[in-house]
Amino acid sequence: MIVVKDVSKQYGDFTALQNVDLEFGNGLYGLLAPNGAGKTTLIKMLATLISPTKGEIFYNGKNINDMDDQYRERLGYLPQQFGYYKNYSPKQYLLYLAALKGIGKKEALNKIDELLEKVALSDVVNKKMKKFSGGMIQRVGIAQALLNDPEILILDEPTAGLDPKERARFRHLLTDLARDRLVIISTHIVSDIESIANEIIMIRNKQLLYKDSVADICATLNGCVFETTIDYGQLEDFRKNNILLSEKQEYGQMTVRFIHKGNSEDEWTSVPPQLEDVFLYEYRDELEGEN
């Protein structure tokens, strides 16, 4: 079990995270927040790439930095930018990383074949990676994170560059893996984790906003999410009075999904809130800033 205890991280005057407390048991956790919210900082601290300025992170009661290689032996990590050697084949690169992870060559060779099969790269095992697409590189990254059969698997934006079919395969793989280990996925794509995460963690203003199941997080907007159809001309006024989540043009009219707290109107249809709705609602300022 990982316990994040009162952790803050500062880079000079800039605070990236502030007083974060978290607990992770076995299962799949989705770390969901827009870009720049501090996801990667938290992930890097969990991967021991950086240390907290304040607070501590424990694995089974021991500080992960003090555990040193004993912790890293149990860790599988895919960084946001997965680096590789262009002239290496996936097999060569995985053999190299297996050696750094302290895995014997014979054991590594068997594991590499099995993993490359899992990520559907069996037919390019010996091809140089410089010819690979972004999705293929990402799949090599996923395979390397699993090399040491880690107890803790941390993946930072793992679905970047994957096509819908690959994403679906990846979700199956993760659900399988999370049965007997701790998997943490950082993403800003709600659909990546909505259906598979046991718990969602949201960070806002450098602090923990939610750590709960999808159902419980969605319940925070119960009775506040509606859909209705309006004329295109009404859209600007509608935007001013409600928080628009999505808009879709149909037969010359607009179907809008929105949040309204207070009395509703008869022509509005109340709909069950989705995780995407909570995400768009909670991060509306940050997302507007991005746009």
């Binding site: 991967a47 890293r72 860790l75 960084p79 680096g83 992870k101 302290g102």
Partner: peptide, 18 residues
């Protein structure tokens, strides 16, 4: 400085040990 730094740093034998 290599872009493989993060991956290698998270291994049992990290960049500095190598």
């Amino acid at each position: 400085q290599n872009h493989t730094y993060d991956v290698e740093m998270a291994c049992k034998y990290n960049v500095y040990q190598i």
